[in-house]
Design a protein around this nucleic acid. Sequence first.
DNA 1: TATTGTTATACTCTATAACTATA
DNA 2: TATAGTTATAGAGTATAACAATA
Lengths: 164, 164
Amino acid sequence: MTASATQTAPRKRAGNGAAPREVADDVGLDALVGHAGYAVRRFQIWIFQDFIKTLGEVDIRPTQYSVLTVIGANPGLSQMAVAKRLGIERARLVHLLDSLEQRKLVKRVKSKADRRSHALHLTAPGETALAKFKLLAAEHERHVEAKIGKENRAQLLRILADFT
Amino acid sequence: MTASATQTAPRKRAGNGAAPREVADDVGLDALVGHAGYAVRRFQIWIFQDFIKTLGEVDIRPTQYSVLTVIGANPGLSQMAVAKRLGIERARLVHLLDSLEQRKLVKRVKSKADRRSHALHLTAPGETALAKFKLLAAEHERHVEAKIGKENRAQLLRILADFT
DNA sequence: TATTGTTATACTCTATAACTATA
DNA sequence: TATAGTTATAGAGTATAACAATA
């Protein structure tokens, strides 16, 4: 559905109390088809599930990966800066970092310049681990390519470049 | 990042204990750029927020809208069929339908053919309300077009057609 | 035995508010 | 007074398991 909210007729009108239709494949979505949000949501669910599965052997989820990647690329960032950049709540980042710090992948270093804040760094094992995570993440991206096509994936990234 | 997991050098190497960098705009994502999942997730968040805001006056969220739309287009569906089609847990659909039924938008009708299941229908006010929701949803889609461009939105829908 | 709807639990994620220690 | 990190709480959303009624 674009601008026109045309009322498409139901494909089948069942009387009240009639046998419900149970075959999901036969169910029309009608107005839902054409909604960008619906397609994007379903695609995002597929992508995250594949990511979680592909990085399952190292027990790293998408958000954890994004945190490690940003810290790895920008050592010394404060927690606020990471939270802002990734669009996650600073309250939630606390728990994410607690977990990553327990696993010895990340360390909080007290800042001398502003003693309220922490400078975030990868540990040496964290650097090594992230390198492995990146290989697995690249494998995941190849799954995405296999799913929607190499050219379509590239177009998608181009269309959504502003959202990174 | 595509197939190559190249280790891009950190843009700035801060010593331990140095002042953390606080300007989010200045933070590089490096390897995160090029991840389809990351861009899709951020875009999906934007879309849902706009949807929730645009349909805020009628207090309808994306999942509620999808349930109403599927029932409206396929009257008589069972709860299992709706849950399967939309990819939501049947346990969760129970609560969604409780809420929609309390608002008199949907009714559960006991099936005579299979007395375990319910045939789902919109009420008369539900039909009227859904028509209004569709107009607001169309407005939301125009916001998406304004955000990424009409042509890009069309391409996106084409690329993700299999996920609807 | 299997399935539909339901209830319940746990865990993740989001959204807030409030507290502390600094600035 | 404002900000960084923390703690706590409440609400969605997801994932399971178990149960009653029915097939």
